[in-house]
């Protein structure tokens, strides 16, 4: 079953592009990574899902309900953590969390203390006096206190120290095991790689690709490093499927996708002194996508 179904979602801000024809699904119980550089349209997509902004065309459904028409009902089951958190400055943390809880039915108040304990958050302080990282913790607690079925995270880790990041990821993983679906937007690939089952890549407002993270990582791409006995030209390795080709006298680096035998045939005729073939990390694949599409 799909928790999120996005269908040709388009948003223009006046004449400037937000997102164009974005379509993808997020399945129940998965952690879906949503990656792209700043300004690619991640936040626009998420803000449309939350009906903070209205789409120019296209539609989106969450839990099978229309995001705009049934937004209120949908949002009962959503926990959202924005990239930058802002709260009512003169409130105390505990008052803000109670205020947040008052919007939901049947919130177990002990959950607030439980989460605050995990995130090491001082409930008595005023929001105003909190550091950025601590405000972020308030954001995490208020996003999770009603045990939402769908957790939407928009660049959630900025401002958190590594220890807190780890606690946060553990928390999200735990919620996921309990059945929560997670939409995780980020431009930091390593964290997406660690957490997610599938990823969608967005660029310049358009979805470039949606794939299983392992497919993306292993099936198609190999990273080659070949050290030749004699210098070669870049021309020699210009095969279909080769990208990021760099030749420095005798050393050749590239990423290859396709039938690996074609590369082997190429180097069969030459004398080589070393050959390394490895899995590229997601970052390299990602860059590769971006360059290819550019």
């Amino acid at each position: 079953m799909n928790v999120i179904e996005i269908n040709k979602l388009t948003k223009y801000y006046g004449k400037s592009r937000g997102i164009i024809d974005v379509s993808f699904d997020v399945k129940e119980g998965e952690i879906f990574g949503f990656i792209g550089p700043n300004g690619a349209g991640k936040s626009t997509t998420i803000r449309t899902l939350l009906s903070l902004i209205y789409p120019t065309s296209g539609s989106a459904k969450i839990f099978g309900k229309d995001c705009i028409k049934q937004g209120e009902e949908i949002r009962k089951e959503i926990g959202y953590l924005p990239s930058e958190v802002f709260y009512y400055d003169n409130m105390r943390v505990i008052d803000l969390l109670k205020y947040s809880a008052s919007f939901y039915k049947n919130v177990n108040k002990s959950r607030i203390y439980e989460l605050a304990e995990i995130m090491n958050l001082d409930l008595k302080k005023k929001i105003d006096d909190l550091s950025y990282g601590n405000k972020k913790k308030v954001g995490i607690v208020q996003g999770l206190l009603h045990s939402p079925k769908l957790i939407i995270l928009d660049e959630p880790t900025s401002g958190l120290d590594p220890l807190m990041q780890q606690k946060f990821f553990d928390l999200i993983n735990e919620e996921n095991k309990k059945g929560a679906t997670v939409l995780f937007s980020s431009h930091i690939l390593s964290e997406v790689q660690k957490m997610c089952d599938r990823v969608g890549i967005i660029k310049d407002g358009k979805m470039v690709r949606v794939d299983d993270i392992h497919t993306l990582q292993s099936a198609n791409y190999k990273k080659f490093r070949i050290e030749m006995k004699e210098a070669v030209t870049a021309e020699y390795f210009k095969l279909e499927g080769v990208s990021d080709l760099s030749v420095d006298k005798t050393t050749v680096n590239f990423i290859f996708s396709g039938d690996i035998n074609k590369v082997i045939a190429k180097i069969h005729d030459k004398t080589i002194s070393n050959l390394i073939v490895e899995e590229p990390d997601l970052e390299e694949i990602f860059m590769h996508y971006y360059e290819k599409e550019a």
Partner: peptide, 14 residues
């Protein structure tokens, strides 16, 4: 102005 809209309007309220 206070950027609290992102807090308030993602709650289940119309």
């Amino acid at each position: 102005r206070d950027k609290t809209a992102d807090f308030l309007f993602v709650k289940p309220v119309v």
